[in-house]
């Protein structure tokens, strides 16, 4: 029965829905991660008084 549900989900429009959501959520996640990592690396090379986020 579960297999039937999976087959039903994999046909029709669900693959497109899943792909679209994966692109948006995944893309935002990857971009956020890359940005944070870049920020951490750069922070080490900048004096602390120049990176006060208020």
């Amino acid at each position: 029965m579960i297999a039937a549900v999976i087959v039903a989900a994999a046909t029709g429009t669900w693959p497109y829905v899943a792909a679209a959501w994966a692109v948006v959520l995944g893309g935002m996640g990857i971009y956020a991660l890359v940005t944070v990592v870049r920020g951490r690396r750069l922070s080490k090379r900048v004096p602390p008084e120049k990176r006060r986020w208020s």
Binding site: T35, V36, G39, R40, R41, S43, K44, R45, V46, P47, P48, E49, R51, R52, W53, S54
Partner: peptide
């Protein structure tokens, strides 16, 4: 990139060590 060689300002008590802050 100079990822391994930590800069002179690492682990500073003053100022955040990332682009994050309380608000974000």
């Amino acid at each position: 990139m100079t990822t391994e060689t930590a800069g002179p300002f690492e682990a500073s008590e003053r100022g955040p060590t990332s682009t994050g802050s309380r608000t974000t």
